[in-house]
């Protein structure tokens, strides 16, 4: 199978999967009212805005290596609306931002996708296995997994030399993870926001 067809298949699978998944996400235990759906829409838009804004910043080492402000949204959704919705936000954001940036079916796009996927799965799992873990811990863990996911894809495209950068990127992930965690922590503390979200 030549590369172009491979890309088309991947695109189709992703699109189909995204459509099915996000509609499936709707069927959740939590009382799924129109308000929540609207909120999620706004969250996604917010994540996209952050993602696009960050994409204007110059690449650091590898395409797609960012501070990850959009992850504030993903993490917030994870805590407030649950795992499935957070996963939907993360994947859709990765797909749409890469489409907007123009690196959709290329290394940068795959890196964002794998990183986001691994990150959200890991954070969701951590929340289940260690209920008392603080938002900082979850965020840092998510950031580390995000870097690992991105490096995995970079490894396929660029070979083993990229592993030389891994320790430094992981070190950075501690910082960005703590930052994102801190921001979500502040959001959680915000009384006005809490009141708004819990109102029916």
């Amino acid at each position: 199978m030549n590369e172009e067809w491979l890309h088309r298949v991947v695109f189709a699978v992703l699109l189909l999967g995204a459509v099915i998944f996000t509609s499936f996400v709707g069927y959740e235990k939590r009382n799924n009212n129109a308000r929540d759906v609207a909120h999620i829409g706004v969250m996604l838009a917010l994540a996209l805005v952050f993602g696009v804004l960050e994409s204007f910043l110059p690449d650091f080492l590898l395409p797609g290596m960012r501070i990850g402000l959009a992850n504030v949204v993903t993490l917030f959704v994870l805590y407030v609306y649950g795992f499935k919705k957070a996963l939907a936000i993360a994947l859709l954001k990765a797909l749409l931002v890469s489409m907007m940036r123009g690196n959709f079916l290329s290394m940068g796009g795959y890196m964002a996708l794998t990183g986001s996927l691994l990150s959200v799965l890991g954070m969701g799992l951590l929340r289940v296995l260690w209920k008392n873990c603080s938002v900082f811990g979850v965020s840092i863990f998510g950031a580390l997994l995000h870097v690992l996911g991105q490096i995995m894809i970079a490894l396929i495209y660029l070979g083993t030399p990229i592993l030389g950068y891994l320790p430094y990127l992981l070190l950075m992930a501690f910082g960005t993870g703590a930052l994102v965690g801190g921001l979500v922590f502040l959001l959680q503390k915000n009384r006005a926001l809490k009141r708004y979200l819990s109102a029916k």
Binding site: P63, Y157, L158, T160, P161, I162
Partner: peptide, 15 residues
């Protein structure tokens, strides 16, 4: 020895 230059955008890797 061991150093590398990587241009991820183009997929170039020099080791």
């Amino acid at each position: 020895e061991g150093e590398s230059i990587i241009c991820a955008y183009e997929g170039l890797s020099i080791t």
